[in-house]
C-alpha cells in the first residue's frame, strides 16, 4: 500500500495523511507532493481575505482536507467565544473540510487565555458542561465534530471517572466522534501511571473517526521524568506498538502525522505516514 496521490477534494480517506504547516504550504501549492490527505489548524485561516486562506482554498482543490481547531476552549466556563465560532463556521462553509475536530480541553478563564490545551477534572459537572458546548458547536456548524483527547501533566483529585470514561461519555452525550491521539494516550499513561491498552480497549469500535500520531519529548524536572507532547520528533516505537493495537481494534482509520516544532522536510512526514500505512495494510490482509 502506498501513499495516495493528490486526488482532489473529498471526504477524508481511511489512509495516512500529514499536517499542513505554513513553511510547507508553497510546496503543496506548486509541487503537489503525493500525500493521502492534509490537516490544517483552523485558526491560521480565520482572516478570510488573507493570503493563507486563499492558499488553503487552492490546496483544498487538490487534497482531501481536515480542519483541526486549537483555540475554541470547549471546556472553559467562559461563554463560548461567538466571534471565534463564527469565523470557524465561515471557514468550514468555504473549505468544506472532510473532517472538523476540536480538543477535549480548556484554555481560558475570565477572558484570559493561556492558549494551551489544559485538562479538565473528570467530573459529572465538567462532563455535562463540555458535552453541552460540543452540542452547541455542532449545531452552529451544522455537522458532527471529532473531539480529541489531550496530553496532560497533572491530574485532579476531584475526578470521579477515568479519562477514557470521560472522553467516551462526552462523545456519546453530544453525538460527536472521537479523534484518538495515540501519542497522547501513551504520554498520559506514563505521566499518570495507567495501562495504555486499557484506554484503547475502553473506546467503542464505532466512534473513532481519526487517529493522531506525533512525537514527544522526555523531559527531566528535578529528578522526575515527564513526557511532554512536543510534536517535534519521530513517532516513538512504543507509540507505534500502541497504534498497532488501535488499528487491530478499530480497523483502517484516517491517521494523521502531526509535527509542529522543528519542522522537517515534507518527505520525513510522508515517510512516517508510509509507516502508518504499513500498519493498516497488515490488518487489511488479516481482515481479507
Amino acid at each position: 500500500m502506498t501513499q495516495g496521490v493528490p486526488g482532489g477534494a473529498g471526504p477524508i480517506p481511511a489512509i495516512a495523511g500529514i499536517g499542513l504547516r505554513g513553511p510547507h504550504q508553497a510546496h503543496f501549492l506548486h509541487d503537489r507532493p503525493a500525500a493521502g490527505w492534509l490537516e490544517a489548524h483552523s485558526e491560521n485561516y480565520f482572516a478570510a481575505d488573507g493570503i493563507a486562506a486563499a492558499a488553503l482554498e487552492r490546496i483544498r482543490a487538490d487534497y482531501p482536507l481536515s480542519l483541526h481547531g486549537v483555540g475554541l476552549s470547549l471546556g472553559s466556563v467562559d461563554p463560548l467565544d461567538a466571534g471565534h465560532l463564527d469565523k470557524l463556521a465561515r471557514l468550514v462553509e468555504r473549505i468544506e473540510p472532510g473532517l472538523v475536530s476540536e480538543h477535549l480541553s480548556w484554555g481560558s478563564v475570565d477572558g484570559r487565555h493561556l492558549n494551551d490545551l489544559l485538562p479538565l477534572p473528570y467530573t459529572g459537572e465538567a462532563l455535562a458542561h463540555v458535552a453541552l458546548r460540543m452540542e452547541q458547536v455542532q449545531d452552529r456548524l451544522g455537522r458532527q465534530i471529532l473531539i480529541e483527547n489531550v496530553s496532560s501533566y497533572l491530574e485532579f483529585k476531584g475526578s470521579t471517572m477515568t479519562e477514557w470514561e470521560f472522553l467516551v461519555e462526552a462523545a456519546s452525550r453530544s453525538g460527536a466522534g472521537i479523534l484518538l491521539d495515540v501519542n497522547n494516550i501513551y504520554v498520559n499513561s506514563k505521566n499518570h501511571g495507567f495501562e495504555p491498552d486499557d484506554y484503547i480497549e475502553a473506546i467503542p469500535t464505532t466512534v473513532v473517526g481519526e487517529i493522531h500520531l506525533a512525537g514527544h519529548t522526555v523531559q527531566r524536572f528535578d529528578e522526575h521524568e515527564i513526557l511532554v507532547d512536543t510534536h517535534n520528533a519521530l513517532v516513538c516505537e512504543e507509540v507505534w506498538n500502541l497504534y498497532d493495537a488501535a488499528i487491530a481494534r478499530f480497523g483502517r482509520t484516517p491517521t494523521l502525522i502531526e509535527w509542529d516544532s522543528e519542522l522537517p522536510p515534507v518527505d520525513t512526514l510522508l515517510a512516517e505516514a508510509a509507516r502508518a500505512e504499513q500498519v493498516m495494510a497488515k490488518y487489511d490482509e488479516r481482515a481479507a
Binding site: 504547516r21 505554513g22 489548524h41 485558526e43 491560521n44 486549537v70 483555540g71 480538543h103 492558549n115 494551551d116 490545551l117 480529541e148 489531550v150 496530553s151 491521539d181 497522547n184 493522531h212 506525533a214 514527544h216 519529548t217 511532554v228 507532547d229 512536543t230 510534536h231 517535534n232 502531526e258 509542529d260 516544532s261
Partner: peptide, 9 residues
C-alpha cells in the same frame, strides 16, 4: 497557531 498546536513545546 501552529505554536499553540496540541503540543507547543
Amino acid at each position: 497557531n501552529d505554536c499553540a498546536g496540541p503540543g507547543h513545546t
